[in-house]
Design a binder for these strands. Structure first.
Lengths: 349, 349
DNA sequence: TTGTAAGCGTTATCAG
DNA sequence: CTGATAACGCTTACAA
């Protein structure tokens, strides 16, 4: 008996390892061993007793206590720039599946497009002892590189590189995908091209796509002509003008081509088209990045570049888990191919 | 000095409370008090020393250790049936915001539409000592009620009731929203109605909407006629037939009306319309539940019922946090109003 | 093969 | 107001 009163035990809680030990008439260590080294060092009869006690008490170890004790949590921190973005969600799903298969749980932190919160997110997740990070943000927002470095945990970057950071990187093969789109449109007779993108800022994917677009034009220099225009929210006039200018440049018999850098831009273009009274596949050919569920429903159907989102997420998770398993070596770069989905917007009538 | 070698301290880790205590020349208890009871019981000079040590070491308390010690984690478990569903995501966003404002972190578990995993999800989250649950699933899938009950933690249900469960419930006012849609369509001249829903199974929202539809028809018995049809994936023929039958029933001068139970059904109907070569707002009037970003782009624009998703999520989180704060009393029921968004599909030409 | 006890990073009780 | 010290639930040397 202790002189001091022990903190009272909250009446009916989950069974703890001590309860099991008591019930089975063994020590806590033995119960712990039952879970972690069962076969190797436990006699059958004791194992049976422990097993029975576990069953009757409905015991399962507390991951928190385990994490505290082991220093690792089997938790993976996933930070997304914007959970509203279907791309992010699709990637998330893939990653989550892979993690669960490997016995990891995903802790999600959504930045809600507030890039300054990146550091905060990392610190919060690190507090919960996540073993590693999957980051689908970065570029803007300071301190993230340091924040990650400070905790010294493995990181995988998805879709957005970050300069100062030596980390595995998983993404769509932007150059390949853009080439697919451009070649398809060229085959359809297009000579004048317009690439519409969200403001590029520091988002690596946007830069890569714009650069790839430029390269495609260069390959057919003299015959293909392209322009890149940044589309901003609420800048409808600029968008309309860019489209009109494009159509104005086109020579007869050669339908001009528009490529959208992502689904957000596609949405804006579709709105502009109704505003202008134009029809996809008629006034112009169109291909957009990101194959949304509604792409088939707009006008004659929108041709798109489908990203292997699920594979991207799964690959990212796998990468990270490999690193957690101790894999060494330089940062890897995994570029997955996109797929051209043909619909009316880019086909000849 | 201990006879036994202590487990070696991993070289450069996060600073712990002990490090801070040492640096400030005080006890761990004092450092702890600095965070939890600063003003009340800490002399200014000691507080200053602690503060300095915290700053130089970059210390912040480990939430895991806190959770272990306190028995509460400031973590909220959020279980969604399907993260792919934009409705769920929108709610998630609202809830997350409210939680963060209140100093809680959300742990997300996605069922991926595998309803049998509900129990697993709850146990996993309970393992991490979440203080309470927000559930956006249930109905199907066994054991969830017991699983929740077993842990005895507060729960808020979103959008889907569950019979055996006494818990706060937050959702769209389905009856009100349906009435809005029906009255609008009736004003537009519709007399023959078709309500298309996903298979109702045990999903309470689907039942409520179907029942509300029936009630609306009953209110104008004799003049309004309605049918409810369940639309299944890959049952295109049945859908087409239902639509044709509806149009067949309509008397001249009275455009028939179609109401879609959610965005998934809306998508199917839109596809059917192009298949049939019909045009929204022409062959029939249309209103669908859920205001998606693409609703304005389909045909003349689709009229919808916009759910206050953000408010739903926020409300759910607030509810839960109130309970965590000790609020007693019977289960509450919070029904938030929907908003009718008018577009071409339900307007007279 | 099993038990003992230290330690993971906190908080809370009790004595000064 | 401050410091020891026992818990929280678990793992893991080390001893037996």
């Amino acid at each position: 008996m202790n002189a001091r009163a022990p903190r009272q035990k909250p009446a009916s809680q989950r069974a703890t390892i001590a309860d099991v030990a008591a019930a089975a008439g063994v020590s806590k260590a033995t119960v712990s061993r039952f879970f972690n080294h069962r076969e190797r060092l436990l006699s059958p009869d004791i194992a049976a007793r422990v097993e029975a006690a576990i069953a009757t008490l409905g015991y399962s170890p507390s991951p928190m206590a385990q994490a505290l004790s082991r220093g690792k949590s089997r938790l993976i921190g996933l930070i997304v720039a914007d959970i509203t973005n279907p791309y992010s969600v699709a990637v998330l799903r893939g990653a989550e599946k892979a993690c669960q298969d490997a016995g990891y749980l995903v802790m999600l932190f959504n930045l809600g497009n507030d890039f300054e919160r990146g550091r905060e997110a990392i610190d919060a997740l690190a507090g919960y002892q996540v073993d590693g990070f999957i980051l689908n943000t970065l570029g803007r927002g300071a301190g993230v590189v340091d924040a990650v470095a400070r905790h010294g945990k493995p990181v995988v970057l998805v879709d957005r590189r970050h300069d100062g950071m030596e980390a595995d990187f998983v993404s769509l093969d932007n150059a390949g995908a853009m080439a697919l789109a451009c070649e398809h449109l060229r085959d359809g007779g297009a000579r004048e091209f317009l690439y519409l993108t969200e403001p590029q800022h520091d988002v690596s994917t946007r830069h890569e796509r714009a650069a790839a677009f430029g390269d495609c034009m260069k390959v057919h220099a003299g015959v293909l002509h392209g322009r890149v225009v940044e589309s901003r929210e609420d800048a409808n006039d600029a968008l309309d003008q860019a489209l009109c200018a494009l159509v104005g440049r086109a020579s007869p018999g050669h339908r001009p081509a528009v490529i959208a850098g992502n689904a957000v831009v596609t949405l804006r273009i579709a709105t502009a088209m109704t505003r202008l009274g134009w029809r996809f596949g008629d006034a112009l050919s169109f291909v957009g990045f990101d194959d949304t569920e509604w792409a088939p429903l707009v006008g004659p159907g929108l041709s798109t570049i489908a990203q292997p989102t699920d594979a991207i997420g799964r690959t990212a998770a796998t990468c990270l888990i490999e690193r957690l398993g101790g894999l060494e070596g330089p940062a890897r770069q995994l570029l997955l191919p996109g797929q051209l989905v043909l619909r009316g917007s880019s086909l000849s009538p």
